Amino acid sequence: MSFSIIKATQEHIPVIIPLLDAYRVFYEQASDEFAAEQFLKTRFEQNDSDIFLAMTDGITAGFVQLYSSFSTVSLQPVYILNDLYVSTDFRNKGVGAALLKHAQQFCEIQGYKGLALETAVDNPAQALYERLGWEKDVHCFHYFWTAR
């Protein structure tokens, strides 16, 4: 199967919405395509993320979304690979690997230190991450505080 990776623009929002919604449902959130559309519009308006799409025969097979951040310890910028999703019809066909490799190349081209991601402990994609050179951080814990 051949596919290409392109940088998404606002014009791609309609094809990203169902993927973003399916991604959220995968993480046990209620389906809400309207909210997904508003979220994407805001990302593009504020230019605060980079989204790449895997395309094949005019179909969007998956996406990856990166957010820019900084490492104070290393004094370098880093990307947070916040979202990676491949449509169920295109899984196990190299789409996820291609999106990850593209994100890695984009990071290098931008001169960033690297990419960070967080995933569920039972996510089967961990094998893919490790195959592509990602290292599991076992030296620290991840904490999150929720505003009420």
Rank of each mutant, 00 (worst) to 15 (best):
L115E: 01
Y67E: 04
Y67R: 04
P14C: 07
A30I: 06
Y85E: 05
D50G: 08
N92V: 11
L66F: 06
F34E: 15
A103S: 07
L40N: 02
I6P: 06
T72C: 11
Y67H: 10
C107S: 02
M55E: 12
A8M: 06
T72D: 13
S69G: 14
P77C: 05
F26K: 12
E11Y: 14
L40C: 05
E45T: 12
V25W: 02
F106T: 03
E118A: 11
A8W: 05
V95K: 00
C107Y: 02
D48Q: 08
L40P: 00
I51L: 14
A8R: 07
G96W: 04
S49G: 05
I80Y: 15
E118Y: 15
F63T: 00
A30K: 09
L75G: 04
S69H: 04
Y27I: 07
F63M: 01
I59Q: 15
Q10G: 14
D57C: 15
A36S: 05
A35G: 06
R91V: 08
E28A: 13
D48P: 03
H12Q: 10
S68P: 10
A98S: 06
S74N: 08
S68I: 12
L100R: 02
A22S: 11
I5H: 08
H12P: 03
G94C: 01
Q46K: 09
E118H: 13
F39R: 06
F90T: 03
V86T: 12
L117P: 02
S87W: 12
G111W: 10
F39M: 07
C107L: 00
K93M: 11
S71N: 09
L81H: 09
A116V: 12
E28C: 09
A22H: 10
Y27N: 05
L100A: 04
D50N: 13
D83T: 03
Y112D: 01
F3S: 11
Q104G: 00
D48R: 12
Q105M: 08
Q38R: 07
L53S: 03
I17Q: 06
V78L: 12
F44I: 06
F70I: 03
V95D: 03
Q76D: 08
D32K: 00
K7S: 05
N47L: 12
T72L: 07
